[in-house]
Amino acid sequence: MIKEYLTAVRSYLNDIPADEREELLQFYEEQMLDAGYTMEEVKEKYGSPKQFARSLKIEYFIESDEVADEDMPTSKRTKNRVTLIWLIVLGLFASPILIPVAIGLVLALIGAFIGFLAIIFGIYVGIIGTLAGGLFAFVNGIILLWQSVPTGLLFIGGGLLLTGLVVFFAPIVWRLTRWLFEMLVQFVKWIGHRYLGKNHVKEAQ
């Protein structure tokens, strides 16, 4: 019976690497068998296979994100983080926590995400605009040079200044982007921990 329950749980855990998945399942299988739970008690404590798998996945992705700093390539880490955000949003929709709280949290998340995108979009439009303006002024300045040297020089100078500003600020903006993403991820992880992770598994009485 418990084997079947765990087989069902396993079928929902495809995004966890095989060796870690088996280790995880072995741990919980031992817990269930050693505690001598009946099938009812397992369901009471861990929920349906799908619910249990979901909280295991959230915990797994939160934890692997916390230890991922050095050895994991950034692209893989970002991918894991996007998976994590997605899992938590899905989890909130399906969670047993009070509906108004869940809706509030989902709205807060969507708000945070739109805010994040809006800021990023604004910044990058600003940068590209400045860069385009700078290059345009520079090229125009060269053309104007044949008509009037001072105007041409003014445009060339302005163009160089704008281009220089972009080159100077681009790394800062890039860091700001990463920082904002980091904040977003921390916020989502906090929600996941608070509402969906460990606390979701009921304490044994």
Binding site: F27, E59, K198, V201, E203, A204
Partner: peptide, 17 residues
């Protein structure tokens, strides 16, 4: 669980780490 009131889902990551 008995001494500190910590559930097994908290302990799994601890043991793993």
């Amino acid at each position: 669980q008995e001494l500190l009131g910590v559930s097994e889902s908290t302990m799994y990551p601890v043991l793993r780490r």
